[in-house]
Design a protein around this nucleic acid. Structure first.
Lengths: 341, 341
DNA sequence: CTGAAAGCGCTTACAG
DNA sequence: CTGAAAGCGCTTACAG
């Protein structure tokens, strides 16, 4: 039995709970109780702790999970962790989970329903305690009517009603604010560019249509695949038209990058030739000249709220389905300065 | 035994390998073999597959890991997943792992040695197959002389020699390129701003000093905590001095944001009053006016290479320690345009 | 509060 | 190729 040691870890290969028990002069059951929250006398607890240190024992989580029938694991399934929105949310989810002594397993679906199905099966094999999930529209529809064998909290995306809890932005309200702001600044021909694959894009489009109707303006919108390239191509064509919009609202930051590139490629001044507003307060939207007006999402709060919903449901399974709708914060910048005809 | 079903998942609570065996008319051992790569006749394999479908069986991974003594898990420990460099690397690591049928567990240390120690212990409890790790300097030093009970591949950061494999950028070369480029464009008073907590910052500083010496120029550098705020404060003071640098090279993108803000706060034109170059080709460095010259790191390649080193070492433990040093790509933009005195 | 014993759901020698 | 049996390392009734 070879021994390694360092500041961090005293390792003896193959130390099990029996070895600790022997070293502490107690039974394995007592070691288990001392490590958990079982009732153990202070005296024995101290002996066990000393033995743990002496042996360098690390509990085997696979064994613990199997025996206790509790994986202590939260599944987190998102489109792409490289999307800064999901990056930030996942960080909040992980912090919250680690504080509760749980771990997180993360999967990237790439907005592909087949991979969503694959990862959902994987989550089953992991026997996860609960799932936090940003699904595509098609999977969202399926799951709205079906229960899984663990609680699910949707984030970022949700339908009306449904069987599962959800935490989402108030997309209609947020888009309404953006449109109202542009109108107030003197813009009338306001176009909308929306992603075509998530419910979020759809809700933001609805908010756009609603707001335009409220102001008696004629809406004009386009749907594109959720990539900067698709948005750039669409915007370049659109902005070449005779009757191009005075302003554009865009449903996410990836599309916003595409639109910005298109505007620059066309030599359009912002906001002189084209005002611009979008979602997600990423660092580049502030650093660019002029800064881009955006709706900032409460990303930490979304992650935390999702975990809270999950914990509450685990504690009280009978709770009614809850939907937490959070408001965005409108960050005004130069890209929507008052119109100068 | 309640039954749920949907397109994705046919769930019967508590279906185990015995239930599948019964349904297929074979022994549990045969089910196990049919699901793995054990020798099973085509006939029985088909029966098992049908029974799996009929019962909605999902193997319990905790049991499998415990019994097979193989967690099939890669640990990934980084400073902060919100750093786009780590985001991209982690995505590459996960893709590579999932392709190999392994999963990844991710931890964020926040550059805190105590949390690094905590997570390293956690990795032990998970009985991970191997670790990919971007450590702080102090932990790097500790681990360089110590073996853990799983193979470790350092990414982004490494010391000289050491016991573990590593994948890093050629930081000296990259910084040398940046300095040479600035010199060629007519800059002489070139300052350096470096992070003070990682070996990467130190190596880039060394590359800077080396290059400045090569050109016979007087170096002037400062070290700061790895945050945009710290960099901004330091840069504001620095740029207020009478003898401020004509150009600044900056060791990471967080610091670069701070410097950019400081330059703007001081009303300095880029590159007229201050040329700027840094690391990591993030979208904002291109979108800003003028674009910022940066070293682009081969992030996907770093993640892939780290996984490959890990797999090779698992297959052949006796391999000598290897260090993969990858070259960055210098992306030239307006922030380092030819000097106009 | 403590210990002996059973068992979580698998995989894998072992024997045939 | 197949099955019966043992056992991975824990936790948890059960009994005291």
């Amino acid at each position: 039995m070879e021994t390694f040691s360092n500041i961090f870890i005293e390792v003896r290969m193959g130390v099990g709970i029996k070895d600790v028990a022997k070293a502490a002069g107690v039974s394995p059951a007592t070691v288990s109780r001392a490590l958990g929250k079982g009732p153990v006398s202070e005296e024995l607890r101290a002996q066990v702790e000393a033995a743990v240190r002496a042996t360098g024992y690390r509990p085997n989580l696979a064994a613990r999970r199997l025996r206790s029938q509790d994986s202590g694991t939260i599944g987190l399934v998102v489109a792409d962790i490289r999307n800064p929105f999901f990056t930030a949310v996942s960080r909040a989810v992980e912090d919250s989970a680690y504080r509760a002594g749980m771990r997180v397993i993360l999967c990237n679906t790439g907005e592909d329903p087949e991979r969503e199905a694959l990862y959902l099966r994987h989550m089953q094999s992991e026997r996860i305690t609960g799932l936090i999930f940003a699904p595509t529209r098609s999977t969202l529809d399926q799951l709205s009517k079906k229960a899984l064998d663990f609680p699910v909290v949707f984030i970022d995306r949700c339908g009306p009603g449904g069987l599962h809890d959800a935490v989402v932005l108030d997309n209609r309200e947020a888009m309404g604010e953006l449109v109202a702001h542009l109108v107030e600044r003197g813009y009338r021909r306001i176009g909308g560019l929306f992603g075509n694959s998530s419910s979020t894009g759809a809700q933001r489009r609805d908010g756009y249509l609603e707001a335009m109707a409220r102001f008696g303006l004629k809406p004009e919108f386009r749907l594109v695949a959720p990539s900067a390239e698709a948005a750039q191509a669409e915007a370049q064509a659109w902005l070449a038209a005779d009757e191009r919009p005075e302003a554009l609202v865009v449903s996410n930051s990836l599309l916003l990058i595409g639109v910005l590139r298109a505007a620059r490629a066309r030599g359009l001044a912002i906001p002189g030739d084209l005002a611009l507003a979008g979602f997600d307060n990423e660092s580049w939207t502030e650093l660019v000249e002029p800064g881009i007006t955006v709706i900032e999402q409460p990303v930490e709060e979304i992650g935390r709220a999702a975990m809270n919903l999950l914990f509450e449901r685990l504690k009280t399974p009978g709770l009614p389905v809850r939907k937490v709708v959070l408001s965005g914060r409108c960050v005004l910048r130069g890209s929507t300065a008052t119109r100068t005809p």
